[in-house]
Design a protein around this nucleic acid. Structure first.
Lengths: 180, 180
DNA sequence: TGTACATCAGTGAACGCGCGTTCACTGATGTAC
DNA sequence: TGTACATCAGTGAACGCGCGTTCACTGATGTAC
């Protein structure tokens, strides 16, 4: 039956929120529209009252994740870096960076999800207080470390990779080569 | 109808080869058993005369890619690095590093594919002539750069990321911090 | 070396299943009078 | 303010489709005599 405008808006928010967590956790192809709706206590059919297609939701979920995953975290560049390249982050993709979580899913996508990802990528670069060249190199190291840590079965190797990348990044930050 | 032992062995090789290229290009979930067999000019049914399951093929395909993707390339560490963190590599996942191609697919897999990937990962680390800590950090940067280059829609950004990572890696290689 | 038979690589249709999307329906909400 | 009606959020079944896997079948290959 029909719901009030406020209820409907709240439902829509819930769907984006759930999708944003589920996609990061299980990948885009690994989560069905029914999974997302189920996580909100709803049934599949209602989905299309809120979104044109699964792709439209994917795009919104990426954008949402790209904004909220950095909110409430540390403010200082070094602390952000330490939090990003951490075991905690590697262990919890559903609450973490959508770029690290979806980077190899995304290059098979087209249209809106692709563009949302590109925007998220630029947003990430901008958050690193360094000249462009180092923004890019540091982003590569940070994302690579998290992705490899997640990929390796052995948590000891995961921690090793993260710690190595963390050290490397902090050295770059402190080296005379690094100019703000 | 039945084929000679030699023909059958050749077919098996063909399947692994085709799978190894297709999985790297389109992801594990993006390639069906029928796709692989079709690429070899065969029909689906015959697949199970050669492999227990799709997963068994995935594991073999990863192992194969991990060995062949480095064969025939440059021998010198710096040249290997330059070839790895290149636009050419980013543009051709099907012939490149299976780790960069499948890193975010893999952490949803279990069993044999997972183990094959772990082995490939260790193989990659070992190929970098540096102390363990730097092997890991450099691998993270290299993989991260290729993955981000592939993820970004704009080829200019892709080239920027690769070039930044390449420079960073070469500096680490040449810095006094780097000890063989 | 020749013959009879078992083996098995490859075919093509079928299986159950889960997917994204559509649809007729329900009934509370919102609106026009 | 009260009433009649249109709207539309959410339901649950159905759609066509592609998937991994199974299966009865075919006929050349390999083997036992």
């Amino acid at each position: 039956m029909r719901r009030s405008k406020e209820d409907a808006a709240r439902t829509r928010e819930q769907i984006v929120e759930a999708a944003s967590r589920l996609f990061r956790q299980k990948g885009i192809a690994g989560v069905s529209v029914a999974d997302v709706m189920g996580a909100c206590g709803l049934t599949v059919g209602g989905f299309y009252k809120h979104f044109k297609s699964k792709d439209a939701l994917v795009a919104e979920a990426i954008e949402r994740a790209s904004i909220t995953s950095t909110a409430g975290g540390p403010r200082e560049a070094e602390d952000i870096l330490r939090a990003y390249v951490s075991f905690e982050h590697a262990k919890h993709p559903e609450a973490g960076c959508p770029i690290a979580a979806l980077c190899s899913d995304i290059h098979r996508e087209h249209g809106a999800p692709r563009e949302a990802f590109d925007t998220a990528l630029e947003r990430m670069f901008e958050r690193i207080p360094a000249p462009r060249r180092q923004q890019l190199a540091m982003a590569a190291t940070a994302v690579g470390a998290v992705v490899l840590a997640r990929a390796s079965k052995d948590p000891k190797v995961a921690e090793e990779v993260l710690s190595a990348a963390r050290q490397e990044l902090l050295e770059v930050f402190h080296s005379p080569r690094h100019r703000r």
